[in-house]
Write a protein that binds this DNA or RNA. Structure first.
Length: 272
DNA sequence: ATGGGCACCTGGCTGC
DNA sequence: TGCAGCCAGGTGCCCA
């Protein structure tokens, strides 16, 4: 599910309820996630004040007094803020109960997400330390892409999802950004021209910003902190639109498999 | 270093 | 109605 816009939407949604609150306790109902939730999580978190709610790539970082909670939503995870007596659903893995009386609840049917506690700088954590730049930062440019794509023979679509080069772009927004930049997803990344890479960098920023503004894309599971879905699905040009007419030229959208993931594109518009 | 493929999981949909 | 098969917003890890 959640790519950068969905994680950022979640961050913005949960932050007001968490900021400066104290954690009353943690209720773990299902420890099994990508890595099991630590047995001592309640003991470690109870009583701590929440200092900040940040995002790095697709990770949410909840800074506490003695360390940071690192959350990932995987493919199907979501976080909601609600009264703790709210009925528990399948796959509600844990509640973080706050001194406000509200709770942060983590739900993840497919269990590809994670909830970890790390002492010290979370950016030095094994999972975070090798991540590439944030695409919405000003330093993320076509020049940067040119530098890191040089000599790479992998298809551009595949490389866009490589978190060591840039973060936050997953299967939906990789296809969407390439459509906006009019680039064929099969093109070898290292063969793209500087002008194409400048356009691609702009397209990535644009599609991520528009998606954040729409509250993200909901295909199946994703909901924001208040339970609402994201509305960017209506704005998608190619993702899951196989056989439907291109919104620009009416040519049927096509899809194929690339690195075990579905890629969608318009064969007429994306010839770059 | 790079690239490719698998694994981890549940649930929803399709077609027989 | 039942069931097998296929597919799904991610990413760490192992192998060539």
């Amino acid at each position: 599910m959640p790519e950068l816009p969905e994680v950022e939407t979640t961050r913005r949604g949960i932050a007001p309820a968490l900021q400066d609150r104290r954690i009353r306790g943690v209720v773990v109902r299902e420890r099994r996630l990508r890595w099991p939730i630590a047995r001592d999580l309640n003991a470690r978190l109870s009583g701590q004040r929440i200092r900040a709610i940040r995002r790095r790539a697709k990770y949410l970082l909840i800074d506490l007094e003695t360390g940071t909670l690192i959350l990932h939503l995987g493919m199907s995870g979501s976080l909601r803020v609600l009264p703790p007596e709210t009925g528990v659903l399948a796959h509600d893995h844990l509640d973080i109960v706050l001194d406000s009386g509200l709770a942060l609840r983590f739900n993840d049917p497919r269990r590809f997400g994670c909830v970890l506690f790390a002492e010290g700088d979370p950016l030095s954590h094994k999972l975070l330390r090798r991540l590439g730049p944030e695409p919405l930062e000003e330093s993320f440019t076509g020049d940067y892409l040119q530098r890191v794509f040089r000599g790479r023979r992998v298809a551009i679509k595949t490389l866009l999802m490589n978190g060591q080069l840039l973060v936050g772009v997953g299967n939906i927004y990789a296809s969407e950004a390439l459509f906006r930049a009019r680039i064929n997803p099969r093109r070898a990344a290292g063969r793209l021209k500087p002008a194409q890479l400048r356009k691609l960098a702009r397209s990535i920023k644009q599609v991520l910003n528009l998606a954040i503004r729409a509250g993200g894309t909901t295909l199946r599971d994703y909901v924001g902190a208040n339970g609402d879905p994201g509305y960017f699905r209506r704005k998608l040009y190619v993702y899951e639109r196989s056989g439907k007419p291109c919104r620009v030229c009416r040519t049927p959208i096509r899809h194929f498999t690339q690195g075990q993931r579905s890629t969608y594109f318009c064969p007429h518009c994306q010839t770059g």
